[in-house]
Amino acid sequence: MFELRLVQGSLLKKVLEAIKDLVNDANFDCSATGFSLQAMDPSHVALVALLLRPDGFEHYRCDRNISMGMNLNNMSKILKCGGNDDIITIRADDGSDTVTFMFESPNGSANFEMNLMDIDSEHHGIDESKCCAVVRMPSSEFQRICKVLSSIGDTVVISVTNEGVQFSTRGDIGTANIVCRQNINVDKPEESTVIEMSQPVSSQFPLRYMNSFTKATPLSNTVTISLTSELLLAVEYTIAEMGYIRFYLAPKIED
């Protein structure tokens, strides 16, 4: 049997809002490590990795590892049936082809049963060692930059140098360049921009995906953007001391 109880149910709603437009169907893996997910978008350009650790839940019981295939739009519909302040319990019996969502509030409770799906998916090994530039900045600022740039062009070039991180785009009406410099705010660390770099790196990415990633903004005040020497982008939002949601995006390369 698998059962988890999340007092701050709104957190799970925010997670679903962050990934449901990027990924259609996904396996939620339940194990001693936590409640996790790894899935690619239908075009296989982006990968999302989610982890919610057991100690973040009021109750977490996982008798044996199970994988629950869910349509994320349907899961989102069910989560929207609960109130924002509700406690959410998710339960699945061994061998069952359904999962139960229970919403509790001081006024009562509600149960929803959703059919599970068989989904073929591969688990991908993620090598973090090739990281050559890391930028941590306010998530709202990153969201604003992606939105502004997508009104000008379709592709963003992200360049990290000693000067800072530059986001550039070009389109029919002209070009746009936004530079963020390192800025440490001791009193409000969440408003800082921190750049760590072993070597300058520059790579370009489709803005459509970047804007999709920023739907995770309500989960965290800060976002961490990493570029590897192979020009792969990782965008990470931490989830209040219980885990993270990470988006990986493959670059566009000059042919």
Binding site: H124, G125, Q204, E230
Partner: peptide, 14 residues
Amino acid sequence: PCLQRKISDYFSGD
């Protein structure tokens, strides 16, 4: 012209 790489170019599946 730019070529969009695939995520599977970067990760090893099991």
